[in-house]
Simulated assay, not measured.
Amino acid sequence: MAIPHEHGGNVFAVARNLGLAPERIIDFSASINPLGMAPGVREALTQSLDRLLHYPDKGAAELKQALAAYHGVDPAEIAVANGSTELIHLLPRTFPGRKALVVAPAFAEYALALERAGWQIDYFTLSPDVDFALDPAALGERLKAGYDMLFLCNPGNPAGNLLPLQDVTRVIDLCRESGTFLVLDEAFMDFCEEESAKHLVRGNPRAVLLRSMTKFFGIPGLRLGYAIAAAETVAQIVAQQDPWNVNTAAQVAGIASLADEGYCVRTRSYIDEERARLAAALAEIPGLQVFSGRANYLLVRILRQGVSARQLREALLAKGILIRDCGNFQGLDASFFRVAVRLEGEDDLLLRALVEALR
């Protein structure tokens, strides 16, 4: 049976259904930096308004230079996009194949992109009973069945688990040995940048690393993402992209975000501290199991019989709090939900609402 393609962050639709202003809802369903945009982004956008009289820089040259400096790669190894979702949908249409393997639970757009391109999809499902650990040897055996493309997200979404770099290195080697094109989605890796595999894929023509500026840099409304890959692979991707795919405001915001090193340091420090506090508090609520994570969200399982994540979501919505029901993720059931790490006061509101709802 097909898994429904749903997402968190649908705060506008939820607000309309409730007859509320979006600002009245505390959105824990979308994992966006609670500190907001980098301070210089607003000013940079204001100063760039006159640029909107012109077409965007088609090649996003200045943004590519900024990204290359940020990651220590060559600009020719970067393809920028209208969010990393553009790239997710582009890759199955750009690189030949018919059979794909998705490491699950996973972002629903992988399957949707593959379906639209006519690919057959299989899943390599990780178990919550072992904290969603990946066994490279078992994956290697599965790849022997003959897969043209593998989708892997690290840190996992929605699990939040961080695969050790040595395991990711082994996956890269396994894909090379089996002739499988690897799509490694690091949409949340900015929160633990030191664990990135970016320097392992840039010389591999059969691998692409995806990154997003939505989550860490707090600009989801501008839609900005990019890929890091070998220069020849990037050239193939760019050849398939629509012209002017990244607007001027997104380019300006991206450059300003990358320039603020202090913002990056503050974000990582705050998320690490608040995530640990929120996880400990959630674990103290009877009937909940919290999974460890390294991103800006936590996956939680309801252990109490007769209570589903959907029911809990509806109960919290009555209090203006929106969580992510994870029952539609491949490999998860109706007992799982995800919450973003937000500001301390907002997290405290969530905790109190959960205690009341689970009495």
Rank of each mutant, 00 (worst) to 15 (best):
M1R: 08
M1Q: 08
E6K: 15
H7G: 11
A13C: 11
R16F: 11
R16P: 11
I25W: 01
S31E: 15
S31K: 15
R42I: 12
E43D: 15
L45T: 05
L45H: 05
Q47G: 04
Q47N: 07
L49K: 11
H54D: 14
Y55L: 15
P56K: 02
D57E: 08
D57Y: 02
A60N: 13
L67D: 08
A69W: 10
V73L: 08
A76V: 06
A76Q: 07
E77F: 07
I78F: 10
A81D: 01
A81R: 00
S84Y: 15
K99S: 12
V103S: 11
A106I: 12
A106M: 12
A108M: 14
A108H: 15
A113S: 01
E115F: 12
E115K: 10
E115S: 09
A117L: 01
G118M: 06
W119P: 10
W119I: 09
Y123L: 15
F132Q: 06
F132N: 07
P136E: 01
L139N: 01
G140M: 00
L143V: 08
G146M: 02
D148W: 10
D148A: 08
L152V: 10
C153G: 08
G156Q: 03
P158D: 02
N161R: 11
L162M: 12
L163R: 08
Q166K: 15
G179N: 04
T180W: 09
V183Q: 02
D185K: 07
A187S: 13
D190V: 10
F191A: 01
E194P: 14
E195S: 14
E195P: 13
S196Y: 05
A197Q: 07
L200C: 05
R206F: 10
F217E: 04
L222T: 00
L222V: 05
L222F: 07
R223D: 14
R223T: 12
G225W: 08
G225L: 05
Y226A: 01
I228Q: 02
A229Y: 00
A230L: 05
A231T: 11
E232L: 09
Q236F: 08
V238I: 14
N247T: 06
A249M: 09
G254M: 03
I255K: 02
A256C: 10
C264Y: 08
R268L: 02
D272M: 10
E273A: 12
A276V: 09
A276T: 13
R277G: 05
R277M: 03
A279S: 13
A280S: 09
A280H: 07
F291R: 02
G293C: 00
V300N: 01
R304V: 13
S308W: 07
A309Y: 05
R310V: 13
Q311P: 14
A315P: 06
L317R: 07
A318F: 11
A318V: 13
L322I: 06
I323T: 07
C326R: 02
D333V: 05
F337R: 01
F337Q: 00
R338N: 10
V339E: 04
V341W: 04
V341Q: 03
L343W: 07
E344M: 13
G345K: 14
D347C: 11
D347A: 06
L349C: 08
L349K: 13
L350S: 10
L350R: 09
V355E: 14
E356A: 06
R359E: 13
